[in-house]
Design a protein around this nucleic acid. Sequence first.
DNA 1: GATGAATGAGTATTCATTCAT
DNA 2: CATGAATGAATACTCATTCAT
Lengths: 194, 194, 194, 194
Amino acid sequence: MPAHRPGAAGDPAPARRSRRHDPGRRDRLIDATLRVIAERGVAGTTHREIARAADVPLGSMTYHFGSLDEVLAEAFTRHAEAAAKVFDERLGAATDRDSAIEAVITLVRDDLLGSPDDLVLAVELYVAAARNPALRAVTQGWMQRSRRALERHFDPTTAREVDALIEGLVLHSALSTDPMTPDQIRHAIERYLR
Amino acid sequence: MPAHRPGAAGDPAPARRSRRHDPGRRDRLIDATLRVIAERGVAGTTHREIARAADVPLGSMTYHFGSLDEVLAEAFTRHAEAAAKVFDERLGAATDRDSAIEAVITLVRDDLLGSPDDLVLAVELYVAAARNPALRAVTQGWMQRSRRALERHFDPTTAREVDALIEGLVLHSALSTDPMTPDQIRHAIERYLR
Amino acid sequence: MPAHRPGAAGDPAPARRSRRHDPGRRDRLIDATLRVIAERGVAGTTHREIARAADVPLGSMTYHFGSLDEVLAEAFTRHAEAAAKVFDERLGAATDRDSAIEAVITLVRDDLLGSPDDLVLAVELYVAAARNPALRAVTQGWMQRSRRALERHFDPTTAREVDALIEGLVLHSALSTDPMTPDQIRHAIERYLR
Amino acid sequence: MPAHRPGAAGDPAPARRSRRHDPGRRDRLIDATLRVIAERGVAGTTHREIARAADVPLGSMTYHFGSLDEVLAEAFTRHAEAAAKVFDERLGAATDRDSAIEAVITLVRDDLLGSPDDLVLAVELYVAAARNPALRAVTQGWMQRSRRALERHFDPTTAREVDALIEGLVLHSALSTDPMTPDQIRHAIERYLR
DNA sequence: GATGAATGAGTATTCATTCAT
DNA sequence: CATGAATGAATACTCATTCAT
């Protein structure tokens, strides 16, 4: 295409350099992927949709990623990492059992139920993982990491059980038209941990 | 076409006759749908796949169902009904709090975790419901019904909480490579209910 | 189906006789066909659509007609006949050249442009005829009959020319967002015939 | 790709190379669409048929056009433009009323009735426009443009009326087994314009 | 006689991926 | 290095027609 004409000669630093070098693009594509999954589900996450969300040409997708599965795996990994980090930080900041319990409550009420997108992402990851071994590794890493974080304050059995409880509370609240109130969440967790 | 009436005499039941008349086909299609969902997920559940599973021509699908969503809704409704029935029966047979607790344990360990397909179906329904209002009604009916069953033996708050716990235990076990042992399941539930 | 049980014995004149004998049905189907063509075009006229419009079971269509083309041909024939009859009557009632001119004006303004459905039917018939010889016979019969009617008052050349003019006026008015006013119609016809 | 300019040297122009690169394909698809409409009508104009006519894979259609309606609209627009151009040119070349009348006669006899395909295209467009607003815009533009061209030589009322007459003459001739002779066409138009 | 069920061919459209430029 | 174009397989859905009851 003529519009490309790379400078006949002595063409000094063209002002509008298009996007020949765009180092953050791969990154932006992964973020866009998470947005698309949240909005349309894994089943509705296509090369086209991601490219549109990130405002890059379609061809860019397969240039940066070998396959759609690869994109999904990277996106979910990034998401899980971010979620686990919050988990770690909340519990890391707790100094005793009581403040750890408060941390768990905050975690469920604010971090998990507070951002509907994260919630959707979690459930989407669960199903996708059921059929995609690469994603299963992601969920397992995530589970393990949250369990480790809980074990800083609770014995392993309690940690595991409360982890499951958290999962159930989140899922129920996510799908119910009549989700639990913050007080009900607190009650459920305290009953288990106090 | 000679002899459409098989069985005149020593005629060993032809395996696959022309199926022009096939009562119960609609029913079989719904069952086939559940099998396909369990095997390939909602995303992999297509008209073609269901028709193949039921050994029926493709055109038959859209004759019996107005849309794929309709098929999914009917299939999940049937599944939820069956699951809720087991729930009701287990808890209906319990006579006191102690036997109710045993019923819950059996429910989780045997009925839910015992049949991996049912487990997958549950999770698939969760995600599908996140984007399909018709399915949301199914999940909600199911949730409500199990809560009612639990309320025959426990107060409403406990019923709701334990229902969430069950959900979490099932989900965690479903997705973990290192699922909880039966004893761990019993421990988690007893801790909550005793 | 058990509901059919045709009377065990001496079952005297069942009150709700369903529709076993329905002599007008074929007729109603043809009328329904014309309604469907007007509403959805020949391309959108299917067995199903006609059956729905006439509120009869789908199977009834192929019971009464050998093919969809047959239905279309009968429907268009009936329509053309009715239209030609109006044409004949209007011009038959005219006693001299002047009243014949008035008849033509009324024909275009009231009969043709007055009922949008008839107009659509005419154009639909034109295109359908372009590819269906059976329908071509219908259009030709119609054309001839209107020409004969015009020839009762005008010489053959004029009859033919004014027939074409009528066609053009109708078509233009039908497709324009800015259709001719009644006065413009009158003007165009009088210019030609006076 | 070697030698797109045939005739470099005894290179017998390979009949059908891989068409991975094929500029102008979109254009050829539009032309093919017009051919298909002329041959099989709008109702018979499918993605497949167009792709076959243009010798292009099916997937190519929906790559280049968002929907079949879009293809139809583009095709009819192109056709209307070409037809209007001829109209403009014929009338533009006329210097007085007499030569303008001759131009109209030539237009109908040669340009419109002379190419049966164009005639079919016109009628097809009419019906399609009845149900497709995008196409209605095309017909209206076309109508307006021809009226403007006529108004260069005739007063607005006459222009409008003769435009309708032309339409009717064309339509009648198109559908009749006994179409008007060139002399009859001339007679009809002269009667109106002289 | 009348009809619900059945079916195969066809429809528009989507999409992961490949490839020439 | 980056991308627009290309493509074949798949998807949901429609429908004329056939047929067993």
